[in-house]
Design a protein around this nucleic acid. Structure first.
Lengths: 230, 230
DNA sequence: ACCTGAACACCGTTCAAGT
DNA sequence: ACCTGAACACCGTTCAAGT
């Protein structure tokens, strides 16, 4: 059996000619860097190889193909995904805490949901990856939610946190050149006069706040929504 | 001013050398055919050109680039998207009817959500495209939902219908070779014994039904969920 | 065992002509 | 006005060698 983290094995030297040895994980992390800086379109095999100062061919000694690299990227992200510690007796606090952890995790891997959209990553959904989700669903069931409501609450939780991190945080963490973070509604690009009145009203219900404050109010909405389901 | 639908103009002949003239719409429809048959990866400019018996270069007389073709595809799909007719006095029936129409629309353009995931189509979200959504949000507000609940109800509605059409219907409308439509849970691939108990329980709550019956029970869940929000 | 360099079959896109 | 054919700069991937 190989060691779990791959760093303790004595068969593979950590360095080779003064440069660190290539590994699946190092390749995946280089890809993640490009992903965060430039997005999925720039994350080509050639670009990953260039960042590692290696020929594109070298990657194929560790990774079967591009799809296999995506699989490793998912594995690397999964490895530091927060495992929820949820207490049904203090359910509101523990739900908030977990959401804050989850938000930090999404922010640490910017562009991952864009990648998931660009390539189809659902086939890489493993039991390990779903374990936090399972815990969360169990938590909602403990709260007395029906299975359907538990499913919905789980979906809404993950959707709201990931959406917030990938849209709002990504925008604020590295704003586009010449763009104003203070003016952004989310769904509708500025429509004509009198158009989309209801969507506008719903969106207008939220004024601008700094990211952390806005996130807390999203959490408040989420907790209230879950509470209403009980 | 040009005519709106492009077919009534007398400046462009409908045929040329016995073959129908190329138009943005014809190109987009050819792309949609490939999309439904083979998926986003096969929908290349060269493949679209080949289907129209034309050189790849010819497309660029009508479409600025691939991204512009995607824009036209969105426009073509939008043009026959059902506009909801919703009556707050018979809200359950009208919600069901609209959802059935929406399901049919998604089925008529298979692979569109896969395309939306593969390429980022959100920049093409226009006021026209959002008008049905605005109507639906207004409908939920009329029902007495808070803006937040209206937003959630709208999201859940679109998500459930599109998810059903793109996953369940797409599977049944053209099943993969050698696959059994009767055995498919959705989220978790068969996990190990004792793994993911809560997710399994939640998923196991739904037994196999023919698509239409299952869709009706999804609608029942949706209506009940909206009712609980009032 | 693991690397490089050259090559192959693709892709989106453009140039220079044809009619 | 609108087409074709050839070409360019890319891409993922593989082959045949190097050390």
């Amino acid at each position: 059996m190989a060691t779990a983290d791959g760093t303790g094995s004595r068969r593979r030297p950590e360095f080779r000619k003064g440069r660190p040895t290539l590994t699946r994980e190092r390749i995946a992390r280089a890809a993640l860097e490009i992903l965060g800086e430039s997005g999925p379109a720039e994350m080509t095999m050639r670009a990953v190889a260039a960042r590692l100062d290696v020929s594109p061919r070298a990657l194929y000694n560790y990774v079967a193909d591009r799809r296999d690299l995506l699989r490793e990227i998912v594995a690397v992200c999964q490895s530091d995904r927060p495992q929820p510690r949820l207490d049904a007796d203090h359910w509101q606090d523990s739900l908030r805490t977990y959401c804050r952890d989850l938000r930090a995790w999404y922010r640490a891997h910017p562009g991952m949901t864009a990648l998931a959209r660009a390539e189809d990553l659902t086939p890489f959904t493993s039991t390990d990856l779903l374990r936090p989700d399972d815990t969360l669903v169990g938590f909602f069931l403990d709260l007395g939610l029906s299975p359907q409501d538990a499913y919905r609450a789980w979906s809404i939780t993950v959707l709201q946190v990931s959406g917030f991190a990938e849209m709002w945080d990504a925008w604020h963490d590295r704003p586009a050149t010449g763009a104003d973070p203070a003016a952004w509604t989310g769904v509708p690009p500025d429509p004509g006069a009198g158009e989309l009145p209801h969507l506008r009203r719903v969106v207008a219900e939220t004024a601008y706040e700094p990211p952390d404050a806005l996130f807390e109010s999203v959490l408040a909405m989420l907790v209230a929504g879950v509470d209403a389901m009980r």
